[in-house]
Simulated assay, not measured.
Amino acid sequence: MDRLRAAKPPYPDLFAGALLWGMQMLAAAMLGLYLRNGLQTSRLGEVAALYFLGGLLSWPFALPVARFLAYNRPSEARFAAFFVTLTAATILMTAFLFAMEYRIFYSRWHAPFGSVVWVVQFVFTSVSAVYQFLVIGLRLFLPLGLVCLVASSYHLAKRMR
């Protein structure tokens, strides 16, 4: 029961942390994009929104899970819990948002909603989008995203005693 109580973060940590994590992921993506092609893309605003929202929306899921896993553990285990949970949640949320954007674009050529063909098209379009994000989009988190991840995980592990 104590573990569940400890997993519930204070609301300021949840909301301010989400905003800060979203801004960090935005900065990481913009630096990654700058290093790869000097920000030369016609979709800069959409890319920025995707990575910001991926960070913003992943934080409320990652923080309680990491706090649950880190409860009453040594500092190394707390760091690992925050590191792994933030990594997984951020990648999954950003990939999900990318897949939904991908799905919206291709939906005009898909079968009517709810049909068996629509379900197959939805699943394969989403899987293709997630794969494309993992191959192309993950590298935009580097190098700054890794630095932010290590620093945030260290800070969170130190704060939770």
Rank of each mutant, 00 (worst) to 15 (best):
108 R>I: 14
53 L>V: 06
70 A>Q: 11
42 S>G: 12
32 G>T: 09
94 T>P: 01
151 A>P: 08
13 D>G: 15
17 G>D: 04
49 A>E: 03
96 F>E: 07
10 P>Y: 13
18 A>Q: 07
101 E>G: 14
127 V>C: 05
86 L>G: 04
43 R>N: 11
136 I>A: 13
120 V>T: 15
114 G>C: 12
41 T>S: 06
153 S>F: 06
86 L>S: 06
108 R>E: 14
22 G>N: 01
88 A>N: 11
47 V>W: 00
148 C>R: 04
19 L>C: 12
5 R>S: 14
161 R>G: 12
70 A>D: 08
121 Q>C: 09
1 M>I: 13
69 L>C: 09
115 S>D: 10
2 D>L: 14
121 Q>V: 10
138 L>C: 07
128 S>W: 10
73 R>N: 05
154 Y>P: 07
68 F>P: 07
107 S>Y: 11
8 K>L: 15
53 L>F: 11
56 L>W: 10
43 R>Q: 13
33 L>V: 05
115 S>V: 11
29 A>W: 00
76 E>S: 15
111 A>G: 09
34 Y>C: 05
26 L>G: 01
83 F>G: 07
32 G>A: 08
20 L>Q: 06
17 G>A: 08
35 L>A: 01
118 W>H: 14
108 R>Y: 14
42 S>K: 12
110 H>P: 08
113 F>I: 15
145 G>T: 03
58 S>N: 03
34 Y>I: 04
141 F>Q: 01
48 A>Y: 05
141 F>D: 00
82 F>I: 03
53 L>Y: 07
134 L>M: 13
21 W>R: 01
66 A>G: 12
92 L>T: 06
4 L>M: 13
8 K>C: 15
78 R>A: 03
10 P>Q: 15
122 F>H: 11
149 L>G: 02
90 T>R: 00
96 F>N: 03
141 F>G: 00
13 D>L: 13
51 Y>T: 01
141 F>T: 00
153 S>P: 08
121 Q>L: 07
97 L>N: 03
53 L>T: 05
73 R>T: 04
102 Y>V: 03
97 L>G: 03
13 D>R: 12
87 T>D: 04
121 Q>S: 11
139 R>K: 13
49 A>W: 06
56 L>Q: 04
2 D>P: 14
145 G>N: 03
14 L>I: 07
36 R>T: 05
89 A>I: 05
55 G>W: 01
38 G>L: 00
60 P>D: 02
60 P>G: 03
132 Q>K: 13
157 A>M: 08
34 Y>V: 07
43 R>A: 12
130 V>T: 08
41 T>A: 02
20 L>E: 06
23 M>Y: 08
10 P>M: 13
110 H>G: 11
40 Q>V: 09
104 I>H: 11
126 S>M: 12
92 L>M: 10
70 A>N: 10
38 G>S: 01
97 L>S: 03
53 L>S: 07
143 P>Y: 01
157 A>F: 07
49 A>Q: 03
2 D>G: 14
141 F>R: 00
141 F>K: 00
7 A>F: 04
72 N>I: 08
56 L>E: 03
95 A>P: 01
4 L>Y: 13
83 F>R: 08
